[in-house]
Nucleic acid binder design. Structure first.
Lengths: 106, 106
DNA sequence: TGCCTATTTGGTCAATTAGCCAAATAGAGT
DNA sequence: ACTCTATTTGGCTAATTGACCAAATAGGCA
């Protein structure tokens, strides 16, 4: 692996690490429907608000979501819907395993 | 988040965690070109062979790659090429950030 | 059988991550 | 200015992860 390749894969890994958590995937999914503020997401997720705020910071630093302060609240939305293709990738992997198992069993 | 949703997102996170490492992304990329054995991948990556073996185990447990013992070696290949769409997802996110920055600067 | 190569496993250590609580900060509205 | 709400930050602990080394395992081949 060349130095250049190494940098490149680390950059890709930086984004994929941000995606590697159930609550963060959930947040992305919800933000595809509509924008939400921290408090609303906290109620949806059911964790401490500081925990949710930190998840949001991680997603923001990875450039996956953006924030906008309006009135008393900070509203978050997807920076780009392109991240949603992640979900089909993950479910495709899961499905391909199920198919594999079925193929072996039949 | 309902119990059912929680389980679902944890299942998705299980796969995405397996993808969240530079060496593992690199392995996936190389295995798209051709199959490789552990020793070959170790030379490409330049880490300890036990480290590489563990990365391969993680990918295998996530159902992303499969192994096949032939002769003296264990050869790994992608279980499904569908996982490759991950790369375009990640690069799209990176690109969308660059575009965002350019939009702001211009 | 015995040797050799390839791979996995177990142990240890350092670094990172995730969660909560408490405290600090920011700003809206009175 | 004061209060109240929303959010972030700092501190702490427990759990997980990643790396290496050393040892165990597995199989092929002389």
């Amino acid at each position: 692996m060349t130095d250049h390749e190494k940098k490149m894969y680390e950059e890709l890994a930086r984004i994929s690490k941000a995606l590697a958590h159930a609550s963060r995937l959930y947040i992305i999914h919800k933000l595809d429907e509509q924008e939400y503020c921290v408090k609303e997401l906290t109620e949806l997720i059911g964790a401490d608000i500081s925990t949710v705020s930190k998840h949001l910071t991680i997603l923001k630093n990875a450039g996956i979501i953006i924030d906008e302060k309006r009135g008393n609240c900070v509203y978050y939305q997807l920076q780009c819907r392109c991240v949603l293709s992640m979900f089909s990738c993950l479910t495709d992997v899961i499905d391909s395993n199920k198919n594999k198992i079925n193929t072996i069993l039949n």
